[in-house]
Design a protein around this nucleic acid. Structure first.
Lengths: 342, 342
DNA sequence: TTGTAAGCGTTATCAT
DNA sequence: ATGATAACGCTTACAA
């Protein structure tokens, strides 16, 4: 291993000067700067990250906590975090909590002292746990940034979910759908709560609440049968995975999409465009969110209180179409107040 | 920040003893061991990773290099790497090269001195670059492990691709398909070469070579038209993404799958089971490969020359069916020797 | 502008 | 079994 001392010796200067030269610090003559650079290059010098971290107290590393790397939603965020970190000369330490909310706190602790800042993309973490994580271990400003979630005390990058819901519902209403159902996500999900709030404000009448489902293909399968039973002609889903499940179940039951029932997803993950019928969905700038979260780290100004909300956009593909003239396998359940979001 | 000195003082011992006690080193009295543990716990002591790394020369970190985190194939591998690393008390530094093979070498260099070992899952990296990476920066044994690729000088975890190809072709032949086409992946891909070699040995006649395509949905769209033109009734694809593209294009052209044309994918990524028709595909233990690659790191024995080849399994779903009695939009091109794998 | 020297928090060596 | 003490490789006062 070639150390700074050796570079300094080769360049005929002291380690201090060599250090200054290589870190672009001031007070170094142009001649020396050049000498040192030349020596470092020819020797193949690589600064020792741990040594640097020990003295500076900074690791040039950002941590990323996600529930499931294999979930395309989080994978897209991770990609954004990765890209931005690399651009800014930092590495990414990634932790997959495997959907285990109890693990998240532990993971944060383990990562805490290895990184300069932490990007938290943990929708399931209880608000109180999140609060303690923010205040406890990462007391300093700019040490933690949230993605797809907002909470006091930490900057965050989230999405204009309300607008996305509005766009989706408007789209379906415009197509003549009167009975629109919502296949919701986990009750503990911050972003599901956002969706429900927005649904309550939807124009053109109430939206049927099908309930809460696991945010997976299986959840969608469940929801589809309920939607059919309720006589819905359109289903808005918590996310694309759920939408895919709805589509699959509809097909299995001989119900055509979009001819008989329209389906709208959320997120616009990569596969949404690849399935048949291609999914109409609310596109959410996942990678961009990851990038901006990284920029929120190391928050110098009062960034600690900063919440960025990124715009979303309905992408109309092939899973939505005008409502069928009269497709009602069973009477709509709109009269039951308990399942209606006001 | 609470340091080891403070713990030692609280426990009434020297830093050396405290260190030994906390690292489970020998030569510490049971009493002191307990005292130190208690003090550390009550003070909330966290060893400083950089300091430890500086003295021990070990970072408790593994690096992972992939071309694209958002690709479900690599995401699954990453999840496995992650899980195994965590179980063994290590963290994961991940680098996404964004499909840029020229970036890979640079990334390896950047990661090299921050990790104890590197898991390389870079199918596109030229063999020579890979060779220099293995020998140069990571000279020591057990510093690098390959996934989905084999090369001299480094241990690897790959898949029994030949067997997978055999299973797929046998399946199609058994269904009565005489004209089976292969939609290949990038020429530079190690695993595509494996597939082609296996195809050459396929029983029951030659397999039509459609050519090389990008390993994406778009590549599949291209391949579909060629398969149709060649009169194939079954298409074996480089991976599931390509298969999805084939399926989409078939559907767009009014060709039914599996009624008119059967399609087989490779990898069995998560979405393969979720689309309609559900994809028949060769399931490959991606996460397991990631886990085993981590175990190959820090290779003590002659593990440096070790190559593990994991078993694969054809998963028959809905995208394959018996060959149609006589579906030949155009005459099969089997007579053209240039496009036939012998 | 440059060099000397003092750490940063641990672990490892060497006495005791 | 325990405790000084010297590294580990780097940055940064502080001097010059």
């Amino acid at each position: 291993m070639v150390t700074l001392r050796e570079v300094a010796r080769a360049a005929g200067v002291s380690p201090a000067t060599a250090s200054r030269a290589l870190t672009d610090a001031p007070h170094v003559s142009a001649a020396n700067r050049e000498q040192v650079a030349r020596a470092a290059a020819s020797l193949g010098y690589r600064p020792h990250p741990a040594a640097r971290a020990l003295t500076t107290g900074t690791t040039a590393t950002v941590g990323l906590v996600v529930p499931d790397l294999a979930n395309p939603f989080f994978a897209a965020v991770a990609k954004g975090v990765q890209a931005r970190a690399r651009e800014t000369g930092r590495e990414v330490l990634v932790a997959d909590t495997d959907e285990d909310a109890t693990l998240e706190q532990d993971v944060v602790a383990r990562l805490g002292n290895r990184v300069d800042g932490l990007v938290l993309c943990s929708p399931r973490m209880p608000a109180e746990t999140l609060g303690s994580v923010i205040s406890e271990a990462l007391a300093a400003d700019g040490r933690v940034a949230l993605v797809n979630r907002e909470a006091p005390g930490a900057p965050s990058v989230s999405f204009d979910i309300a607008d996305g819901v509005r766009q989706a519902v408007d789209h379906l209403r415009a197509l003549g759908h009167e009975t629109v159902a919502y296949a919701g996500g986990p009750r503990t999900s911050w972003s599901d709560a956002e969706r429900r709030t927005a649904l309550g404000a939807a124009a053109g009448g109430a939206v049927l609440d099908l309930g809460s489902f696991r945010p997976t293909h299986g959840g969608g399968v469940q929801a589809a049968d309920l939607a059919l039973a309720a006589g819905a002609t359109a289903v808005l889903c918590f996310n694309d995975l759920v939408a895919l499940g709805v589509l699959a179940r509809l097909h299995a039951r001989g119900v055509r999409a979009p001819d008989d029932v329209s389906v709208v997803g959320f997120d616009d993950v990569a596969t949404a465009a690849l399935v048949t019928p291609a999914l109409t969905t609310v596109a959410v700038p996942l990678a961009r969110a990851g990038r901006e979260a990284v920029d929120l780290l190391g928050g110098n100004a009062g960034a600690a209180a900063r919440h960025r909300r990124l715009p979303v956009e309905l992408v109309v593909r092939a899973s939505t179409a005008p409502a069928p003239p009269a497709f009602s396998p069973s009477p709509p359940a709109r009269t039951d107040p308990e399942v209606v979001i006001r």
